[in-house]
Design a protein around this nucleic acid. Structure first.
Lengths: 344, 344
DNA sequence: TTGAAAGCGCTACCAT
DNA sequence: ATGGTAGCGCTTTCAA
């Protein structure tokens, strides 16, 4: 490695002291304009870029924040939500000279260890908390570690700073739409047990049904996966009681459910209308195209990143609500033309 | 923040000097067993975790490596390949106490800037080079920056260390299979222009056709996206000359192509047999399920990470070939039963 | 406004 | 085998 340009070189070249150079470069007050200009010129000419290592040690900052993605290791592959979230986060971090440290773990205890290490090693200045569970142990952990954290879509009255995208209204719109089309009971395939967003979607579905004065349909336990959707379909098929409309906790589940029902010879939406949640690209690739609740993970990500950096900078922050999710009606709901079954 | 436990505290508690404590903790030679044990005990009792900041500055290491993903910001969303790659990388890094710094940029020049910053700020000890282009400027850049780098699937005779997964044989198998089923010309929808893997797939397709003694079918320019696949389908439809078999540069393209052809009333694989490349989950969700070349991004990722850390540790390395990609025959090829067209 | 100097926490060299 | 000490590159008092 070539000897790198340090602040000493810059100071020398500008003919000032190291401390003045530092102050000038960091836009700190107490430096004359001429000195500042001279220092900047020197830095430019030398191609000076401050070493994060030195900066980190002396300023007690890592200039990085962490995201621990906890799920099967193929999440990023099967669930596109994270990609968009990360993209949103990254767009903000980049502008502020921060980096994203990404960890992927399979189990919750491993995730907790990672947070512990990130904090203990002072590798990051803060973290994002995603996929919150009920009574999530990470809350206490963050408080104990005194590690700045921003939660993504936690429940109401969450004790840590949070970014939320509300979807209750969109879910209400969906159920209302189902009702308008003549459905008298709307089933729901839930997400994995224990997650806050699983319960939020269940209760939004419940209240909407109640408000609209229809039966709350059957509730099936899913797990946010394609196979979970298929399993739910099997269950419905075996029960002999097929709902006319089904709202799934996410798109992947809805697609699994839909395909399994189609394999059983059912027509979508003729025999059964189906809707998902998320708005992932896959929903447009299947036939019929999937009606869904459009979430905006990119916006959530950038809001969360902005908030986290503000906290790190010790600026006051308030919880952020990004624009609510919206109903995107596509082909898997809507036409109530009952077509004849096309085969087993 | 509570005052953190430093190596000074550990040394004090163990009743040894700081340098001995450091040596003991880092498994350096020149420390008696008893001292080592005493230091370790002290560290455990105090819950000591070395500060990465101090360590980084003095040891001139970042204990982090970088990955710059360059594509539309929704890549991670639309192209699941990266998720698995990152998972593979992460699994190795975690074991060695390294972190992954992830950057996402939209344009090539922005990517180059990021590498420049990562290097100049000494934020990482090395980087992964992905999605190589012909005469990729990053080669010269890495050499100039003297930044350790491992390339993922570059061409042959690449000047930097590399990890490769060969697919020529699998592509040959695919074409052979097409031929065995009676196809006499195999079209190809390529990837985006300028990429090494785009050309590799084109030439593998060419040689396979030549070796098998059949016509090389029409070559259409794609771009690795779903919409690119649809566009290719439009082109074929408009040309009036529909191939009986089409090999696409990736699964997303194949799915776009397939769905557009189905919309035109064609039966897959009855009228047209289609195959993709990658083995993403989406291929199993569409109907018919997509025949594909199964790649193993996770394995590629972990091999690349192992290699990069070895380089960082100044160990000698040789290029790695992970197990070659394989043909996964599913429903979109195979049955040569020509069914009557069912529509336009 | 400027500069000297004291760390930040650790590694590594060099005596002992 | 052990311990003192000089940095690593930067920020941040505190004097001048």
């Amino acid at each position: 490695m070539r000897a790198r340009v340090t602040i000493v070189d810059v100071a020398q070249r500008a003919g000032v002291s190291i401390s003045s150079a530092s102050a000038a470069l960091n836009d700190n007050p107490g430096v004359s304009d001429s000195t500042r200009a001279r220092v900047r010129d020197a830095a430019d000419q030398l191609g000076y870029v401050p070493s994060l290592r030195g900066r980190s040690l002396s300023s007690r900052r890592a200039f990085a924040v962490g995201l621990v993605v906890q799920r099967q290791t193929d999440v990023l592959e099967s669930d596109p939500f994270f990609g968009a979230l990360i993209g949103g986060i990254e767009s903000v971090l980049a502008d502020r000279g921060y980096a994203l440290v990404l960890h992927m773990v399979e189990r919750a205890d491993a995730a907790r260890d990672r947070y512990e290490q990130l904090a203990a090693g002072r590798r990051v200045d803060g973290v994002f908390l995603d996929e919150l569970q009920n009574d999530d142990p990470r809350i206490a952990q963050m408080q104990r570690l005194e590690l700045p954290a921003v939660a993504i879509n936690p429940g109401p009255d969450f004790p840590l700073p949070a970014v939320r995208q509300h979807a209750d209204e969109a879910i209400h719109d969906l159920i209302a739409r189902f009702v308008a089309e003549g459905h008298r009971a709307i089933a729901h395939v839930s997400g994995a047990a224990g997650f806050v967003h699983t319960e939020q979607r269940i209760s939004a579905w419940r209240s909407a049904c109640a408000e609209l004065g229809i039966d709350e349909g059957v509730l099936l336990a899913g797990d946010f996966t394609y196979d979970g959707g298929r399993a739910a379909a099997e269950q419905l098929l075996a029960s002999g009681e097929l709902p006319t409309a089904i709202f799934c906790a996410n798109d992947l589940t809805a697609v699994g459910l839909m395909i399994r029902l189609q394999e059983a010879g059912l027509s979508i939406p003729g025999d059964v209308a189906i809707a998902g949640f998320d708005g992932i690209a896959l929903g447009r690739y299947v036939r019929p195209q999937l009606t869904t609740i459009l979430s905006a993970p990119r916006e959530v990500g950038s809001a969360a990143a902005t908030m986290l950096l503000d906290i790190v900078d010790r600026r006051a922050v308030e919880d952020i609500d990004v624009a609510p999710a919206t109903l995107e009606t596509r082909e898997s709901t809507g036409s109530r033309t009952v077509r004849p079954r096309t085969g087993v």
